[in-house]
Design a protein around this nucleic acid. Structure first.
Lengths: 339, 339
DNA sequence: TTGTAGGCGTTATCAT
DNA sequence: ATGATAACGCCTACAA
C-alpha cells in the first residue's frame, strides 16, 4: 500500500502540515525540518495522492484534449504540439479520441469535465457544426471551463478560437492558378467541417470572381481519405466523365496525392500538363516525386498561441476570443507559378 | 460553480446517500425516488466530481500512456489504437509525450503514477534500454501498477510485453532478397531501441548465415527520420563512397522513402536495378510510385492484445508475460520476389 | 517555525 | 428503502 502524508509525518516526527509545506515549497520551514522531511519522502519514494490533492485544490493543472481521430496526420501533429506546449506550461493532457459521432463527443466532453480539468481543447474543426442545437454541448461546457478551439471558430463567452484563415488562403491559392492561366481547375475535398466549408468558400469565391461557375468543378470524396489509391480512382472517374482539367486544388494533402497517382497512371506530366496543390503541408508532400506544393496552415504557431491564450485566461487575463493566422503556400514541384 | 452531491440531494429532498445510490445504480432505491433524483441530476446537468470519487474508490479506470513522440506515424497510430481499445473497455487514457530523454521519461512516469492510474502503457521500444540501471524506473513503477510494453520486451514481475518478432521477420525479409539473388544488400536504420536492435540482429543473422559479412553493409542515419530528402542524401553518400548495392533493407518506411528518392534522382529503376523494402507498412508506402513493399508488424493486433492483457491483469487473472506476433511482408512494387 | 482542525465531494457502513 | 456519518488524503487558515 502506498504511503500517505500521515505516514510521512509520523516517520519524520512532524505534523502533516509541515510535510505539506515541504511538499508545496512553502518558505516557512526551517532548513533542518525540511531536510528531515525530504529524506523520509525520498526514502519511501512517497508521492502525494493526486485525487486528494485535486479535491482540495479544485485544479490539477490538467487540460482535456478532445480529438476525433488522432491517427489522422494533421490531428496527430496538433495533439503532439499541444501536449508539448501544455507540458512546457506545467499542464498535463488528458487525451480523448472521440470519433466523429456527436453523441459520443458529448459523452466524452462530460466525462472530461467530471475530471475537473482546467480547460478543454477541441482539436480540429469537426467539433463545430452548422446548427446551434448541435453546438449546445459546447456552450454548456463553457460555463464550467474555458473551451479552446483549434482550427475552428465559434463565438460564445469563454470559448476561444485559434485558427488559420483557410478561406482567404484558399482564395489566394486559387488565384495563383488562375493568374498562371491554369483555369480548368477542379476542387477535391472530403470534409464538410468548419474549416472544410471555409476552404470551399475560398475556392468558390476566386472562381466566381472571374465569372467561372464553381459548382460543377467541386468534387466530394466520400471514402477514407488516407486511401490514396481510392482517391486516384475517384479522380479517374471524374476524368472519365468527361471533365477536363489542368489544375487540381485540394482540401487535403491526401487528395493531392491521389491526384498525383492519377497523373502517374495516365502518364500525365506534372506540372506541365497538370498542376496540383495540397493542403496541410504534411510529410506526405515530400514523399513522392515530384514533391507536392501545399499550404502550411501554421499548426505550430496555432498551438502555441492556443496554449498561451488558455494560460492567460486561466490566470484571469483578458484574452482575444479569436486569433487568426494566415496560411502560407509552400511551393514545391507540382505547380509552376512563382511566388 | 458546479453542483455537488449535496446540492442535488437538497433539490431532490433526499439524503446524499440516496443520490449516491442512484448515481451508482444501486438496487435499493424505490423507482419514485430514483426518478425524482434523476430528474434533478438531468436538470442541473450534474456530473460527480471524479477526484472525490477516485479518492473513495482508489481507481478511476484510467490508464497512462507514455509515448516518446506521438507525431511519429507509427507511435501515433499505436496511441490511437490503444485509446480506442481502452475506451471500449471503459478506461480512459492519460497521454504523455515524453521525448527521448531518460530523466524526462522518469519524471513523467512518476507524475502519471501519482495520478493513481490503474496501469501504464509504454508505447514503443525506446523505453527499454540496454542496461539494468536504465530500466530501474520501470521496475520501480511495476511495484505499483502493471506496466504494459508495446513492441518491446522486458522480463520482470508485473511487466507485460506485447511485441512483434522483429528479428525473425527481418531475417525472413533479408532471406527473400538473398533467395532472389539480390545479394548486394545494404541495411538502413536510425534507431537503437529494443526493436531497432532486434531488427539489426535479424538482418545480420541472415547475411552471416550465407557467409556474408554484414558489418560493412549497415548504415546508421542520425538525422530526423522524417526528413526524406536528408535520407536520400545519406544514401547518395553511401553510393558515392563506392559501396555497390542492388537491394536496400530498411528499419523504417521513411528510410525506404529516402532510398526511393535516391533512386529517382539517379534514374535508377526500381525494382529492376534496385530493390527496396520498408518497415511498418505506413501510409507512406502507398504515397509514391512505385509503391513500397513493407512489413506489417500487426500494430492493431498488438494493441488489442495489450489491452486485453491489461484488463485481465486488473481483474486478477493470470496473464502471459510475453505475447509475440510475427510480422507479415506486404509486397508491393519495389521488390520482385514473389511470396 | 510548527501544529490543530475544518473542509473538499464522494463512497460505504452502519443504523433506522 | 433511506438517512447519518465516518473514512479517503490533502490543503490551508488559524492558533500557538
Amino acid at each position: 500500500m502506498s504511503m500517505t502524508i500521515y505516514d510521512i509525518s509520523k516517520k519524520a516526527g512532524v505534523s502533516i502540515a509541515t510535510v505539506s509545506r515541504v511538499l508545496n515549497g512553502s518558505s516557512n520551514v526551517s532548513p533542518a525540518t525540511r531536510k528531515k522531511v525530504n529524506d523520509v519522502i525520498e526514502q519511501y519514494d512517497y508521492t502525494p495522492n493526486a485525487y486528494a490533492r485535486g479535491m482540495g485544490l479544485g485544479s490539477l493543472k490538467t487540460v482535456g484534449i478532445l480529438c476525433a481521430d488522432c491517427s489522422d496526420l494533421f490531428l496527430a501533429k496538433a495533439v503532439y504540439y499541444l501536449q508539448q506546449e501544455l507540458q512546457a506550461q506545467g499542464y498535463e493532457a488528458l487525451l480523448c479520441c472521440t470519433g466523429y459521432n456527436l453523441d459520443v463527443k458529448k459523452n466524452y466532453l462530460n466525462l472530461i469535465l467530471s475530471k475537473k480539468v482546467d480547460g478543454i481543447v477541441l482539436v480540429g474543426s469537426n467539433f463545430i457544426a452548422d446548427t446551434e442545437a448541435e453546438n449546445k454541448y459546447i456552450m454548456d461546457a463553457s460555463a464550467q471551463v474555458p473551451i479552446m478551439l483549434l482550427n475552428a471558430a465559434f463565438d460564445y463567452p469563454n470559448v476561444y478560437s485559434i485558427l488559420c484563415d483557410d478561406q482567404g488562403t484558399m482564395t489566394e491559392v486559387t488565384n495563383k492558378f488562375l493568374d498562371a492561366d491554369c483555369t480548368d481547375i477542379i476542387y477535391l475535398y472530403n470534409s464538410l467541417s468548419y474549416s472544410g466549408r471555409k476552404k470551399m468558400k475560398g475556392f468558390k469565391a476566386a472562381l466566381n470572381n472571374r465569372g467561372i461557375n464553381a459548382d460543377k468543378r467541386m468534387f466530394f470524396f466520400e471514402g477514407k481519405s488516407d486511401d490514396v489509391n481510392a482517391v486516384a480512382d475517384f479522380v479517374q472517374e471524374i476524368a472519365d466523365k468527361g471533365v477536363k482539367f489542368n489544375g487540381v486544388v485540394c482540401a487535403e494533402d491526401t487528395m493531392a496525392l491521389g491526384a498525383m497517382k492519377y497523373a502517374m497512371r495516365n502518364d500525365i506530366k506534372v506540372p506541365e500538363e497538370l498542376e496540383i496543390i495540397g493542403y496541410n503541408d504534411s510529410i506526405l508532400c515530400e514523399c513522392c516525386t515530384p514533391e507536392i506544393t501545399s499550404v502550411d496552415n501554421r499548426l505550430e504557431t496555432q498551438t502555441h498561441q492556443l496554449v498561451a491564450t488558455l494560460v492567460g485566461v486561466l490566470s484571469g487575463e483578458e484574452m482575444p476570443a479569436r486569433t487568426i493566422f494566415s496560411g502560407r503556400i509552400v511551393e514545391r514541384k507540382t505547380t509552376s507559378f512563382v511566388e
